[in-house]
Amino acid sequence: MLRIRLCEEAFVEPILAGEVRCPCHLYSGEEAVAVGVCAALTDRDYVFGNHRSHGHYLAKGGSMQEMVAEIFCRETGCSRGRGGSMHLIAPEVGMLGAAPIVAGTISLALGAALASTIRKDGRVAVTFFGDGATGEGVLYECMNFAALKKLPIIFVCENNYYATHMPIRECRVGMEIHEIARPFGIESRQIDGNDVLAVYDAGLLAVEKCRAGNGPVFLECLTYRHRGHVGPDDNVQGSHTDIRPREEIDLWWEKDPIKRFEGYLTDQRIMTQEELNMAREEVNREVTDAHDFARRSPLPRAEELERYVFA
């Protein structure tokens, strides 16, 4: 979680300086979801992300250097500078890609689960999507088919209460998103998405069910993005983006997943504050190294514009 947070926050300066230009949908505040779910998976399991997938990619085991380089749009990035922040991929660890068309990758995860079923290889597929994606019909088509074929897919809805400028109450009448899966006969749970252990437990159970041929599972994880929809802007009411009440943002900082887990670790005497500080320093070094790597890396060459074009 700390790796994701510090990596995310380290983009703020380069974005403000115009050094990072691609749109970055920061994941700060939501780390427990990606980390809790991905900790329950192995490298052989599949994950698909969306526009806000820095956390999914890192939690699944993608290289931080390659991610930072991609966000700097360098040739050494995981998508060779062709994709930017919204196209993170690490097939070697099961991260089959991320893409910003809302709900666009849900059916792809469905297909990965289908592949697993045909091959009987026990792999599980996870689709991460937001509350906003529940507006797209394809989600319901996927839930129906997954239930019909008992596919090993975990639908992970990151409910952060906003879809761009729209608060969830303006997008749907029933706010209990986990209930949308039940009519399809899908086991569904609502989880405190800022409690990494709760997410992990739910993830383990879901993975177990899927591997046993009793999928799919739907997990609604309640969480919040500390930052606004895109970039470092906080989308605070009264600012030019004018969306979220300051008190709400402050309240969720109280529920910050990292703060909570650090509190747990020290309370349980698993780690001391000093050890936590050391961990933070270590991660900071990793992040700095990744930025150095990205800055040192070459930009894609114009002559290679069509390098990956096959038709």
Binding site: R21, C73, R82, P300, R301, A311
Partner: peptide, 16 residues
């Protein structure tokens, strides 16, 4: 435009 998806990197965008 060439028969090529839109790239991210500004250097490629410039060529595109």
């Amino acid at each position: 435009l060439p028969d090529c998806p839109a790239p991210a990197s500004a250097t490629l965008e410039k060529a595109y």
